[in-house]
Design a protein around this nucleic acid. Structure first.
Lengths: 293, 293
DNA sequence: TTTTATGATAATATTTTGTTATTACAAAAC
DNA sequence: GTTTTGTAATAACAAAATATTATCATAAAA
């Protein structure tokens, strides 16, 4: 750690080139100035001034340190000024969503970001439990999860829901799905795959009592925009949120199997209850509420 | 000024969320931690933590201060690492030249700069006396002047010379220049204009004893690349270094009047004698020596 | 050469900072 | 609920860091 006061003394000395004058400026005595410089040089283990009688020039290290000092003083000045002021269009905004939602929301976010050059957007695609972890450790400030949580620390607000769709290759259009058929087609798994499949099965009894876990798994991808590729090629079926399916380019190669009881997962905008958020998040919250209805 | 130690304590506290643990990490006692936070809050006149029983969340100010602390720690880390190391391809290089030389050298400098993205080049075009002032006040590290100086502080090296040319509109080609003719054409002045004209006159007796200062002045420009415009349009004559004249687009509109005794001003690369320069200047010094021969 | 001004060093005084002891109170355990 | 335990805040005191005065050495100016 570089001592603040020593550094200021050094900076002033460089600017005045005069020990006594520096002392006067900083309301200290001349020996104090000498000592500060000595201490800096001792700590950094390198001379900062090349002495030429009572004059001096800066060594390379001295020049570097001076630039650092100027820089630092400036940053600090800035902080002190900004401390009280909450700029709605600058700073970092950090979010964590499911892969599907990240893919859906991110384009809207970046088009907003492009209007405000000091605004930085950070979106992490992660499974529910990681989203919660990120929120609690302040890695992100806003997350969207599909579960209602009972943590006192977190605050939740339902902002919409995801309709789950059973997606098969196009050639199965019109056919009624049951355990035997699904098993024949085979399942393309993904991070939320089995969870979604279970939910759909619970409401629609697709498997007629048989364990969903027994369905043959034909593949696994964790890149959200690649899950539908094998399905489109006829390799297997999967379960995904409607929003994700819609974004797929070749929807004509897909078949959305009709369900007797449509299943939707609720979406909860989640943040820390006691952590005040800067103004810059307001637009994003509003946008999320609008887009996910 | 924000106290270093307090800030580190704050940063650690934010990261651990635990006063006692922070104290242990920093080899201090728990009350010390409390006091540091208090002192910061008192100095910044704003609460940093929102206390919730024994837990806490950061206020907006706290969040800002934390980001600042992280940032600062990183910068400092970097400084300490770089302190001893002199990178020849990063940092700022600051020069002061006459307008003519600036125009001539700058293109070479920027094409070098474009190869090294961490290298910044700063060139100031200034008259001789300002160049010297800038050198002495460390505003620039290298300058080129046309005079030999006797300051003990400065170190000079002759790197070349500027051939001065008497430039008239093209229609005077072949004519012999004398006071009457020059006075009829009229002088286009610039920062070094009269100085150059005097030098040429001293060696060539163009004015046959009459005062150069009495020649009619038809204009004045201080943008080096605009001085020749009025000359090209037939409005007046001027005196400029050969290098500047060569760079002019429409040289066919100009006439270089032959001189019995060619006049050249010496060019001295000038820098502070006792100020060590970083390695990154080496390329530039070499380049200057090569280009100005 | 003499005088004056400036920076370095040593010893001392002051201020700052951190510690121990104690209190208050929230969270956990019963 | 009540008790216990763990954690942070406060006050008084001890230690350390820091600055000051006095003095010396020497460069710059006269």
């Amino acid at each position: 750690m570089i001592n603040e006061k020593w550094l200021l003394t050094f900076k002033t000395l460089v600017e005045t080139k005069h020990f006594t004058l520096t002392a006067e400026k900083l309301n200290m005595t001349q020996p104090g100035v000498s000592q500060h410089i000595q201490k800096l040089e001792r700590q950094l283990k390198t001379p900062l001034l090349q002495r030429l009688g009572k004059q001096f020039e800066l060594t390379l290290a001295g020049q570097k340190l001076y630039r650092f000092a100027v820089n630092k003083a400036q940053l600090q000045q800035q902080l002190l000024q900004e401390m009280q002021f909450d700029d709605p269009f600058s700073g970092e905004c950090r979010f964590a969503f499911s892969g599907a939602l990240a893919m859906f929301l991110y384009p809207h976010f970046i088009s907003y970001q492009s209007l405000h050059e000091n605004l930085n957007v950070f979106v992490e695609a992660a499974p529910n439990n990681n989203i919660i972890k990120d929120l609690l450790s302040d890695k992100v400030d806003i997350g969207i999860v599909t579960q209602r949580l009972d943590s006192e620390q977190l605050q939740q607000e339902k902002v919409g829901s995801e309709l789950l769709q059973l997606v098969t290759p196009a050639r199965y259009e019109g056919e009624t799905m049951n355990f035997a058929l699904l098993n024949k087609i085979g399942f393309i798994n993904h991070p939320d795959g089995l969870h979604f499949l279970n939910k759909i099965n619970n409401s629609n009894a697709l498997c007629q009592g048989k364990q969903v876990e027994n369905i043959a798994i034909r593949g696994y991808v964790n890149q959200i925009n690649q899950i539908l590729l094998p399905v489109a090629q006829g390799i297997g079926f999967t379960v995904l949120p409607e929003r994700t399916v819609k974004q797929f380019q070749q929807t004509q190669l897909l078949n959305i199997a009709p369900l007797d009881n449509p299943v939707a997962e609720p979406l909860f905008l989640t943040k820390k209850r006691y952590r005040p958020l800067p103004l810059r998040y307001e637009w994003f919250e509003k946008q999320i509420r609008t887009l996910l209805v």
